[in-house]
Structures are given as C-alpha cells and as structure tokens.
Deep mutational scan, measured.
Amino acid sequence: TTIHVGDLTLKYDNPKKAYEIAKKLAKKYNLTVTIKNGKITVT
C-alpha cells in the first residue's frame, strides 16, 4: 500500500496501518485522505 503526501511516497505492507497513518497525517495537517485504486493520497 502506498501513501502519497505531496512529493512524499510512503510504502507500507499493511494496508490498514497505512490507512491509519494517512488519517493521522490528514488530521495533523488538516488535509483530506483519498483512496483510489488501492493508493492512498493525502491532499
């Protein structure tokens, strides 16, 4: 599972963990989490 945050690309083997991290990042920086085709993007 890949999380895209701006220019950063973070890879995680565990999709659930990746989603949790994405949610935390989104909350911290007041951003939105988008999931599309298995890719998690924080914008």
Rank of each mutant, 00 (worst) to 15 (best):
T1E: 03
T1D: 05
T1H: 09
T2S: 09
T2Q: 07
T2D: 04
T2H: 08
T2P: 04
T2L: 09
T2C: 10
I3F: 02
I3R: 02
I3Q: 01
H4F: 11
H4W: 08
H4C: 14
H4D: 08
V5S: 03
V5F: 15
V5C: 14
V5N: 02
V5R: 02
V5P: 02
G6W: 08
G6S: 04
G6C: 14
G6I: 08
D7E: 12
D7P: 07
D7W: 11
D7K: 13
D7I: 10
D7C: 15
D7T: 10
L8S: 02
L8H: 06
L8R: 07
T9A: 10
T9P: 03
T9R: 11
T9H: 12
T9C: 14
T9N: 09
T9D: 10
L10F: 09
L10Y: 05
L10T: 03
L10W: 04
L10C: 07
L10M: 06
K11D: 12
K11I: 15
K11F: 15
K11P: 07
K11S: 14
Y12V: 12
Y12W: 03
Y12P: 04
D13Y: 06
D13R: 06
D13Q: 06
N14M: 04
N14Y: 06
N14Q: 06
N14R: 02
N14F: 05
P15Q: 11
P15L: 14
P15M: 14
P15E: 12
P15D: 09
K16R: 10
K16H: 12
K16W: 12
K16C: 08
K17P: 01
K17W: 12
A18P: 01
A18Y: 02
A18S: 02
A18F: 04
A18K: 00
A18H: 01
A18W: 04
Y19M: 15
Y19K: 09
Y19H: 10
Y19Q: 08
Y19I: 14
Y19E: 09
E20L: 10
E20D: 10
E20Q: 12
E20C: 05
E20V: 07
I21A: 14
I21G: 04
A22C: 06
A22S: 02
A22G: 02
K23I: 15
K23H: 13
K23N: 11
K24S: 10
L25S: 00
L25R: 01
A26Y: 02
A26R: 03
A26H: 03
A26P: 01
K27Y: 07
K27T: 08
K27W: 06
K27M: 09
K27I: 10
K28I: 11
K28F: 12
K28R: 11
K28C: 08
Y29Q: 01
Y29I: 02
Y29A: 04
N30I: 03
N30F: 07
L31I: 04
L31C: 07
L31F: 07
T32I: 14
T32L: 10
T32H: 10
V33C: 04
T34A: 09
I35M: 09
I35L: 09
I35E: 06
K36I: 14
K36C: 11
K36M: 13
K36Q: 14
K36T: 14
K36R: 12
K36A: 14
K36L: 13
N37Y: 08
N37M: 10
N37I: 10
G38F: 05
K39Q: 15
K39E: 15
K39F: 14
I40L: 08
I40W: 02
I40K: 00
I40S: 00
T41P: 00
T41F: 15
T41Y: 15
V42A: 04
V42D: 00
T43R: 12
T43P: 01
T43H: 13
